[in-house]
Every structure is written in C-alpha cells, then in structure tokens.
Computed example of a mutant assay.
Amino acid sequence: MLAVEHDGPLMILRINHGKVNAFDLDLVRAISHQVQDLGPAKGVVITGTDRIFSAGVNLTRLLENDVAYTAAFVTELDALVQSIFELSVPMVAALTGHAIAGACLLAAACDYRVMAQGRIGVTEALVGLPVPPASLEVLRFTAGSRTAGLVLSGRTVEANEALALGLIDEVTTQDSVERRAVEVARQFASTPAQTFALHKQMLRADASRRIREALTDHATLVAQAWTGEEPRQFAGDYMSRLKSHK
C-alpha cells in the first residue's frame, strides 16, 4: 500500500492502495510509521499513482467497521497531519491527480505542493463529518482566509484555481510532477538541517500553538461527531447517492 524508495538523501513515499488510494487506518499507520522513522533521509517526497494522489477517506471501510475503528481513524489521521506539519525535515507533495478530503489535508501539511491534474479540496462537509481540529489549523496555515469557504462549501477545485487559492504552490505536467517535487525537496534539504528545522519551527510556531489549543478544545467533540449515529447515517446516505450517479 506504500512503497518506500530512496533518491540520494530523499525518501520517496509512493501511495498505491486500491483503485483510488483511499485512506483507511492501515494506510494512515503505514505513512505514520515512515514519517516517524526517516533514518538518514534528509527530506521526503510523497506521491501517488499515475492518475491519482488519493480520493480521501475510505468511507466504505469506515462504515463497515465499528465506532472504535472510526475513532482510531480520525484521531490517527489528525495526528499524522500534525506530525507532517511539524516534521523537522522538508516534505514535498507530488500530487499526480485528485487530492480529496484527508489527502488534501495531508498535502496542506507539507512544505510544498506540486500538482499536475485533478481536483483538490476538503469535502468533509458534504459527507457530514467535521474536519479534525489539528488538520483544520494546518489548512488555515496553508489557505489563509480562504479556509472557511473551502471547509463550509466542501467544494473541490482544479489545479490552476488551487494555485490561486494557495492550496498548492506549483502546477506542472503529469510527466514532470514527481521530478519537480524531488527537485524542490532536494533544494530544501541542501541547507543545513538545523537551519531548515528552525526556519520551519519559527514560521509555523503560531499555527502549532493553535493546533494544541484546538486539540484541547475540539478533539473529543470531533471524535464524537465522527462516531455519532446521525453523522454516520448522513455519510452512508452520501455514499448511496454517489453510487446511484455512477
């Protein structure tokens, strides 16, 4: 589900999990394990398959399992986004295609995002589930004043609009998206590690404080919303509507 490759000082994480690289608890844990155990790697590039980065949360698995699975999933996904946001080495996203919901949040946590095609956005409101608290602050750091509109509408946007909104940093071709992400990661990693880490820490200090406050204030409430009967029913109805339109 997650191939680990090395390109000189960089670790390449390649998501290859089912038809659309949907996030389930296994994938979240696999990415978390690699992010926490970088070894000698001085930077990370995370990418997907040829035409998709990730379609977001695997709602089928979420609803097939009990609420304990859901609670673990939302908590660990939020922790993964926070850990990437605060990672001491550079992490660059090569968005090979759609980056929806949790995948958009993961990309927002990276230091730079290169996108080739597809749509990106946070669709949690359409599904009936709140964006996790740490992830919302990460998105606010990346998208600024546009965050509220993106979250409340649940809309997704094409690459060029995403660039204008600040969701991504660069648009390129499908053939060059991973190569360009590697170039950026290598450039970031070429500075002394302590210098990069301190710059990142200082630039993100206010957001990190907001993350800690948001977790204290809202983590339990968000977990309760994800595991509540009404939101789960709403998410199930959303899936049924999607299937009926196929």
Results as ranks from 00 to 15, higher is better:
Met1Ala: 15
Leu2Ser: 11
Leu2Arg: 14
Val4Met: 06
Leu13Glu: 00
Asn16Arg: 14
His17Asn: 14
Asn21Pro: 03
Asp26Cys: 09
Asp26Asn: 13
Ile31Asn: 12
Gln34Trp: 07
Gln34Ser: 06
Gln36Leu: 13
Leu38Tyr: 04
Lys42Thr: 08
Lys42Gln: 14
Gly43Ser: 09
Gly56Cys: 13
Gly56Ile: 05
Val57Tyr: 01
Leu62Cys: 06
Leu62Val: 12
Tyr69Leu: 10
Thr70Asn: 05
Ala72Glu: 14
Ala72Arg: 14
Ala72Tyr: 07
Val74Gly: 01
Thr75Lys: 09
Glu76Phe: 02
Glu76Met: 00
Ala79Glu: 04
Ile84Thr: 11
Leu87Cys: 10
Leu87Ala: 06
Met91Ile: 08
Ala94Thr: 02
Ala101Asp: 14
Leu106Cys: 01
Gly121Ala: 12
Leu129Gln: 02
Pro130Glu: 01
Val131Leu: 11
Pro133Ser: 04
Leu139Ala: 09
Thr142Tyr: 11
Gly144Arg: 03
Ser145Asp: 15
Ser145Thr: 09
Ala148His: 05
Leu152Lys: 10
Ser153Arg: 04
Ser153Met: 01
Glu158Tyr: 13
Ala159Phe: 09
Ala159Asp: 04
Ala164Gly: 06
Ala164Leu: 14
Val182Ser: 05
Phe188Asp: 04
Thr195Ile: 09
Phe196Ile: 02
Ala197Gln: 06
Arg204Asn: 07
Arg204Pro: 09
Ala205Thr: 12
Ala207Arg: 13
Ser208Gly: 08
Leu215Tyr: 07
Ala219Leu: 15
Thr220Ile: 13
Ala225Tyr: 05
Ala235Phe: 08
Ala235Tyr: 05
Tyr238Val: 00
Arg241Glu: 15
